[in-house]
Design a protein around this nucleic acid. Structure first.
Length: 409
RNA sequence: GGUGGGGUAGCGAAGUGGCCAACCGCAGCAGACUGUAAAUCUGCCCUCUACGAGUUCGAUGGUUCGAAUCCAUCCCCCACCA
C-alpha cells in the first residue's frame, strides 16, 4: 500500500484533493508541494486538530475527514493532533462559558473514543496521532511570551467573530486570543504541509502560515471544506444546536434523521458526506426533476448509504425497512421498550411518565390534550383516563414514542 | 482605581408596586397536511393530588394588604477611562 501514491500522477492527486467545493490557499503552492513529494517520494503531512472535550463526531466532521481520506488515498500522511492541552483552554468560537477542565484520564478516554469514530473513515496505517501537551506541557512562560510577540492584536481582531464581538461590546477573553496561536504553533511542531478545517477555521489556519514562517518553515497550505448544514437546513451542523447526525447514532436514528432532511439539502449530503461525484449527483437530480425517481426514494438511498458507511450494509437495509414499516405503513416498530406496571388501574399521565414518554405529569397532560396519545391505537383525550393494564398493551405518544406494558408480578 | 450599563424561564428579549407564571422572537413538543419530508397553518411550552395550589425573575434581609418591580447589603458579568 505504500506504493499506492506513486501510482497517481500530480494531476490525478490534484483533482482528487480539490474535489467537492474545497477552498485552497493556494493552488499553486499545493501543486509545487505535490511535485516535490512525488520527486522525493515523501508523503505530505496533513494536519487536523481535534478538541478532546467533545468526542461525539457527527457528519459535519466527516466532511473534513473525507477530505483527509482523499489525501491518504493519494499516499499522504494524516497528522492527527489531540488538543489535550488546548482542551483545557476552551473554544473561542463558542459563546458559552469556557469548557470545564478535563482530567488526564478523561482526555485519554475521549481521545480513544474520538479515534474509534474517526477510523471509520480514515486509514489508521496512514495516520500519526499526537497530543499537543507533548510540546505545550514543558513550555515555559518565556516561550509563551515569545510566541505571543509574533502576532498583533490588530491581526487577531481581523478575525470575523472577534471583530463582531468586539463591536458588539461582547467579551473576548485573552485566552481566546491565545487559542489561534496555540493552534498555529501545533503546525510548527508537526511540520504540517497542509492543514484543513471548515471554512470557519480559515483565520486560524492562515495564522499557522505566519507562525510557521516566523519559525523558518515553509508555510502550510490551507484547505477549507464547506460547512455542512444540519437537520434544520439552515445552521451548520453542530452538537450545541442539536441538529446533527452522530457517527455513533444508532442505525435507526441515523436513517430517520436523514429522512427528515429537506429535499434541497440532501444533495449536499450526497456530495459532502458520501463523496458522490458531481456527475452522479447531477444524474440523480435530473431523475428527480423529470419525475423518473421520487425524491423520497432518492433520500431513502441516501439514508441507506450513510448508515452503511458507519454500520454496514445489513444495518442499512434493516433501518430502511423498519422506517418504512413504522412511518410509511404506520405499523409498530419491531422493538418496543417494555414498561413494568402493577396489575391495578393506573392513570394515563402517571403511566406516561413511568414509560419515559413524558418528563412530568404536566407534560403528559399537554400531550394528551394535544391528541398525541394512543392506547392500543385508540386516541386518549381525557387526561383522567385510567388504564387497566394488560400484558402487551401498546402506549403511543407522538410519532415515535412507543411503550409496551408488562404486568409486574 | 474611576465612570457607565447589566444579571428575567433552553437562548434572545419585554416588563420598573397589583390586570405577572410574567408580552414577544428563536429553539423545542404536539396536531393538521405529507414523503416521519421541507414549507405552511393551529395549539402547547415551571411543577403538582390540577376550573385549585405551590415554587419562579442573581443572593439574602427589609418596606408594603400586595414586589420581577421600592430600600439595604452582598455576589457575579460587561464596556469605556486610567
Amino acid at each position: 500500500m505504500s506504493t499506492e501514491r506513486f501510482m497517481m500522477t500530480l494531476e490525478e492527486q490534484f483533482a482528487q484533493i480539490t474535489a467537492r467545493g474545497v477552498d485552497l490557499h493556494s493552488a499553486e503552492e499545493l501543486k509545487t508541494r505535490l511535485a516535490t513529494s512525488i520527486d522525493t517520494q515523501t508523503p505530505l503531512r496533513i494536519k487536523l486538530g481535534a478538541d478532546p472535550s467533545a468526542p461525539d463526531l457527527h457528519l459535519g466532521h466527516c466532511v473534513v475527514l473525507n477530505k483527509l481520506r482523499d489525501f491518504q488515498a493519494c499516499g499522504h500522511t494524516v497528522v492527527f493532533i489531540i488538543g489535550d492541552f488546548t482542551g483545557m483552554i476552551g473554544d473561542p468560537s463558542g459563546k458559552s462559558a469556557t469548557r470545564p477542565q478535563l482530567s488526564k484520564a478523561q482526555v485519554l478516554e475521549n481521545a480513544k473514543s474520538y479515534q474509534d469514530q474517526m477510523f471509520k473513515i480514515l486509514d489508521p496505517a496512514r495516520t500519526e496521532v499526537r497530543f499537543n501537551s507533548e510540546w505545550f506541557g514543558p513550555m515555559g512562560f518565556e516561550q509563551v511570551i515569545r510566541l505571543s510577540a509574533q502576532v498583533t492584536v490588530a491581526q487577531l481582531l481581523a478575525r470575523d467573530d472577534f471583530s463582531k464581538r468586539y463591536a458588539a461590546n461582547q467579551p473576548i477573553s485573552l485566552v481566546e486570543f491565545l487559542y489561534p496561536l496555540v493552534q498555529a504553533y501545533d503546525s510548527v511542531m508537526v511540520k504540517a504541509d497542509v492543514e484543513l478545517g471548515g471554512t470557519d477555521q480559515l483565520f486560524n489556519l492562515l495564522l499557522g502560515r505566519e507562525i510557521q514562517k516566523a519559525h523558518g518553515q515553509e508555510p502550510q497550505i490551507v484547505l477549507t471544506m464547506p460547512l455542512l448544514e444540519g437537520l434544520d437546513g439552515v445552521n451548520k451542523m453542530s452538537k450545541s444546536l442539536g441538529n446533527y447526525i452522530a457517527v455513533n447514532d444508532t442505525p435507526g436514528d441515523t436513517f430517520g434523521k436523514t429522512m427528515s432532511v429537506s429535499d434541497e439539502l440532501m444533495w449536499r449530503y450526497f456530495s459532502l458526506v458520501l463523496c458522490l461525484p458531481e456527475p452522479e449527483i447531477a444524474a440523480l437530480k435530473a431523475a428527480v426533476a423529470s419525475g423518473a425517481r421520487h425524491p423520497r426514494d432518492v433520500k431513502d438511498e441516501l439514508g441507506r448509504r450513510i448508515v452503511e458507511k458507519f454500520h454496514g450494509a445489513e444495518a442499512a437495509a434493516e433501518s430502511s425497512a423498519e422506517f418504512a414499516r413504522v412511518f410509511s405503513r404506520h405499523q409498530l416498530p419491531s422493538d418496543i421498550p417494555d414498561v413494568a406496571v402493577p396489575a391495578e388501574a393506573i392513570g394515563i399521565l402517571t403511566l406516561m411518565v413511568k414509560a419515559g414518554l413524558a418528563a412530568s405529569t404536566s407534560e403528559a397532560r399537554r400531550l394528551v390534550q394535544a391528541g398525541a396519545v394512543r392506547m392500543n391505537d385508540e386516541k386518549i383525550t381525557d387526561f383522567r383516563f385510567e388504564v387497566s393494564p394488560q400484558d402487551g398493551m401498546i402506549l403511543k405518544s407522538g410519532k415515535r414514542g412507543f411503550a409496551k406494558l408488562k404486568i409486574k408480578t
